[in-house]
Structure formats: C-alpha cells, structure tokens
Design a protein around this nucleic acid. Structure first.
Lengths: 343, 343
DNA sequence: TTGTAAGCGTTATCAC
DNA sequence: GTGATAACGCTTACAA
C-alpha cells in the first residue's frame, strides 16, 4: 500500500501553469497577486489537499511562529493551569507551543533548551528546576537573540532577565501576619530550595514577618528543599517522631500541603485542630479537601497572560531596544477551612 | 547589538578545510569517516558551539523524530498524568513530543491535526473531543502513511484504528455490582457524551449491570453529555430542585464527581450519608477529599506505555504490514470513603 | 501582475 | 575515506 505523496507548491504550479512563487504568494495573501488569481489558486490548493511543509517554510523564512515552553512538571495543578493558558493564548496569536518537561532535572532542562534552539523557536518561556544554577545556557540563548522569559521560578543570578513572577515575599508575610493575628506563635515553614527565588522569597517573607511580629523562629521547624508531596510527608513525619510539631505549618506549595494531609491522617492527627496548615497555590479542589485548605493564591492566568505579552513584545522588538522587564504580581489570601482560628 | 549567528556545518567545514558532507557524516557517527577525523570534527564542533538546525535536518531527511499528541484538556488529572508519562517515554526514545490542546472543540482539533501533519510528525497519539464525529481527517492521516493511535477516547466509527483504551464497560459494571451488593437500588449515572466510547461504554456497562441485577433504571437519573465540574454540578442541582435525588451516583469522571461534591456542599447535603458517589478516574488527591472519593481506577501509566509502544512499532513498520491493534486495559475498583456502605 | 534566481542548512547518492 | 552535486519545499530578493 503506497502512501499518498504530499502535495507541494510545485504540484499546484504545474497544474495551473503558473510559477511556484505565484502560488506561494497567493496562498499567503501577498498583495502582489491579483485577487482573481489568488482565489483560483486557493481553490485548487484546497481541492488538491495542499498542506504547507512547515519545516521548509521555517527554514526558508527563518521564522517559526513557535514558542518553546519549559516546565519542571506537568501533572501539578500550578503548572497544568499555566501550560493550558499559555497554549491557548499562543494559539490565539497563531503560535505553536513546544512544551518540554525538565522533571526537576537541570541537565535535562539544558538539553531541552538546546533542542528548542535547534528547532528555531521564536521565543522561550521557562520555569526552571530547583537545581538550576548554571546561567551559561541562558546567556547563550540571549546572544543568539532568542527572547526568553522566566516565569515564577527564576535562578538567583538571573534577576536581570525578563521575569514574570508572583510577590512571594509578601505572600508569605501576609500569611504569617494573618496567623499572628489569629494568635499563632509556634509556626513552621516547610520551604523549597532557597537557591531559586520562590523558595528564597517565601522563606524571607516568613522570617521577616516572624521577626517583625516578635515570634521566635525555631530552626527545627524550618525546612528547605522540597516542593512535592514527599517532602511535606517526610518533614511532617520527622517532627512527629521528634514529638516536636508546631501549631501551624506554612507549606511552600499545594503538593507539600497534601503531603502534610497524608502524614497527619496516617498518624491520626486532625487538621486544623491538632495541626494547622496554609500553603501557596490555589487549586479548585482545595475547597473539597477535608478540611478545605486555605492558601496564598498565585494568579496563574495573569502569569501566563503577562508572559505571553512580554515574549511577543520581545519577538517584535527585532533590534533589541526594549530593556528586560520584571513583572511582579500580587498574591491574595484565600481562607477556607484551615488557618482561620487558633485551636 | 548584533546577534551571534548560528554555527553551520559549512562553518566547521571551512575551518577544517573539509567538506560539509564529511562534517555531517562525522557528527552522525557515519562509518564512512575515520575515527580520527570524526574525533577532531566533534571536538571542533563542540568548541564552535555547533547546534544542528532541526528544520533543515528534518526537511532533508524526511524524518522528524517527533510525535504529535492531541488532548482535549491539560489541567485535568487524567490527561495531565498521561501527557507527563508520554513526554517522558518519548524523550527516553529520543523523540520530541508536540502537544496540542483541542479544548473539547472538534474544529480546533482538526486544525491541530493538520498542523501536526504540516510539521511532519512521525506519528500521532490522540484523545478526541466529545464532539468528534468526522473521520475524514483521520482517514487522510492514514493515507499519508502517518501512524495514529487513539487513547482512551475513540470516535464511534473508528473502531478499526490503533486503540489503547480502558475496559470502561466492565468498570461501570463492576461498580454497579458492588453497589448492588451494598444494597443500593436507587442509582443514577451522570454520564458523558455517548457518541464516544468512554461515555457509551460506561453507560452500557451501567445499564447492563442494572438490568442483570434487576434494578429499575430511572430515566430521570440518567444524564448524558458532560465530563466537567459544571456538568456534575448542574445535573445534581436539577435533581435536587426536582426533589428527586437517588441514593448513589456513578459519575463518568472525577471532575463530574467534584461538581457533585460542590453542589452537595452548597445545598447542605452530606456525602456519603445523604447522597453517595463513585466515579471513574483516580487522582491522588481523591484520598484527601471529604469524604475520600472511591473510584474506578484507570491505569494512566499503562495507557501511555502501550500507546508509545504501539506508535513506535507502527513507525518502524514502514511497509505498513502490521494490522491495526486494539488494546483494552483492565480497571479496578478503589474503595475509600464513598460507596462503601448503604446509608 | 507575474516570474527568475538564489538560498535556507541539512542529508542522500554516487563518484573519486 | 572523502567530497561534489542534487535535492528537500519553501521564501525573499529582484527582474521582467
């Protein structure tokens, strides 16, 4: 069974006794070609089932209408939401999005970035892994003239790039302030890696708030380095075994909070009575947890929107005249069944 | 500020006074070239920061090492899990994956499929929208010789394509059998669109089980057409307003069940006491809902694994000698805090 | 308004 | 072992 061969511009040109160029122009609505001819060509192309070869088109035009997106994880509410809206916004502007997943692995991330460059994407949006420190790839991407926008997670030393992030510092601060007003004094922070901003800023917001409100910081209640269910579970279990649980835990992400829910359930402790929790991130399902989980909302749609706007602006800015831009979005406290009163 | 130009094979060839062909072959470990030369060329290429232009490579080799993936949604546990593992498995086999999202819109889906063809992907894995009926695109893809594998959702008339799905019929049947043994007799099904298999099979499994166990089917308790939170919410509210709630609802997806949780909470009914629920799909978070949600588990990892294996086999099968294959995976009942006793 | 020529960066083929 | 040549399908000058 022989496969149908793809129809090319040449095929259409042959059929109509016109040149390839005329066909090409007509199909792209180039004003050079008369309306009548254009119409005819389009009709015939449609009939013949013509489909442009994007490889050839991109190679020739040195423009791919493609965005690269790099995230550490997909099956995670925060990233799922961001990916979905970025895809949607890009599609609306006639851009394809090439998604790659680093799985929190810096080496893999680098490989993906090189692949994206090889694919000649017009711009790159990235949320880096926990371990990303080496900026050389990003510098190289810059030198190549490919616009790059960091979202949410930004390596420590990349503060001068294009960035769209959330005011993590104030988010943590607000949460602690709220807890303080509730009467909480024994507060832990299950934090993330502090070599990237989200971990660092949330940690700093936590510490500054604690200090400002005159609450003592217990170093045994401070953890660094995890964003997953596992981390939340393990940190909790460690404190539980030491018989050293705090009254309230500020969790760096929603999965970490879920890990805490898991652990608490396992050892028969009741949230929020025996141990209270609040976290960063706002998944719809949090309302239906037992108890409903309060959080510091990160506006995923706004992150995506701003990232796309920024990258498009940069792509259009061919002479690279626009300075890098740092956009910081506000968080808000969403209170449900946790962290609403002291027990 | 001028951008750094990308290094090409020609640049390396010039530097070494060799031909482009030699460079190209060496970098691909072609046996034509001596080990010594190959080594030298690789070293210089590395030094010069050479990165292949994938567009050019694909155009020339008529092979893209790229898979196309089409799903109706991303921010959804089931698809998130599938996407993540497909990306991972493809990456391990040196394939890039181009993800596109149909947003449950058949027209958009068709557009994405054409784009994937235009991008010359080597194979396509798709989970269709609720409304996909027109098979012409798929026929065309087949004629073009691009392997295609349907996962989970398959259009009614596409039963002869490559398929990896779940035994939805038996899943529903088992759930009803279990409910029957618990003593439930007033059972509703909040189902999906029945023009695709998952809705249809679950509905049939439900109905056959009901009939076999001699339970009367109340047509007012049968809904068709929704897979989202909204549907669950609306169907529930409709019955609630009619004062016509069943004892147990079999929900076609986890989001539908979540919609039911939402609605029940809003009107002050308690799950599972006042109204009980079980659903298809198994998200980790279901254990932490209040109450923990029981479900018919769909093995997402197995779906992905089988889909990748199948598509790779098809890609390698250049003469198209292997017949289309239908793989049906078993479900299992995961019982937690719902549908565990009659109230 | 249409067409010619050149080139995008790579790989396949075949000759040396 | 190495390389010249053509080709992949398209676009961008520029010429007619």
């Amino acid at each position: 069974m022989e496969n149908e061969k793809a129809v090319t511009l040449q095929d259409i040109a042959n059929r109509l006794n016109l040149s390839v160029v005329t066909i090409s122009k007509a199909l792209r609505n180039h004003p050079d070609i008369s309306i009548k001819t254009t119409k005819l060509i389009k009709k015939v192309a449609e009939e013949m089932g013509y489909m442009p070869n994007i490889m050839a088109r991109n190679l020739s035009s040195r423009k791919s209408n493609t965005l690269g997106l790099v995230v550490p994880k997909i099956a995670h509410h925060f990233f799922g939401a961001i990916i979905e809206s970025i895809f949607d916004l890009a599609f609306q502007q006639n851009y394809e999005t090439i998604l790659t997943v680093s799985q929190e692995n810096a080496e893999r991330e680098k490989k993906h970035l090189l692949t994206l460059l090889s694919m000649k994407v017009d711009g790159i949006i990235i949320s880096v892994t926990q371990e990303t420190k080496d900026l050389s790839v990003f510098e190289m991407i810059e030198r190549r003239g490919v616009p790059i926008v960091f979202i949410d997670r930004v390596p420590e030393s990349a503060q001068n790039y294009n960035i769209v992030k959330v005011d993590d510092y104030n988010g943590a601060y607000k949460a602690i302030e709220h807890a303080y007003n509730l009467g909480y004094r024994k507060i832990a922070h299950f934090g993330g890696a502090t070599n990237i901003n989200i971990g660092r800023d949330r940690m700093n917001g936590f510490k500054d708030a604690m200090n400002n409100f005159g609450i003592e910081i217990n170093p045994n209640w401070i953890f660094e380095g995890g964003y997953s269910e596992n981390s939340g579970y393990e940190f909790f279990m460690k404190l539980y075994k030491e018989n050293n649980l705090p009254e309230l835990i500020l969790a760096v992400t929603y999965p970490v909070a879920l890990g805490i829910y898991m652990a608490a359930k396992e050892v028969g402790l009741e949230i929020p009575k025996d141990i209270d929790v609040i976290c960063f991130g706002n998944a719809k399902v949090q309302s239906f947890l037992s108890p409903p989980l309060s959080c510091i909302d990160q506006p995923t749609d706004l992150i995506s929107k701003n990232a796309i706007d920024l990258i498009m602006k940069k792509i259009d800015d061919e002479d690279n005249e626009i300075a890098p831009q740092q956009i910081v979005l506000d968080t808000s406290l969403v209170l449900r069944g946790t962290c609403i009163k002291k027990h």
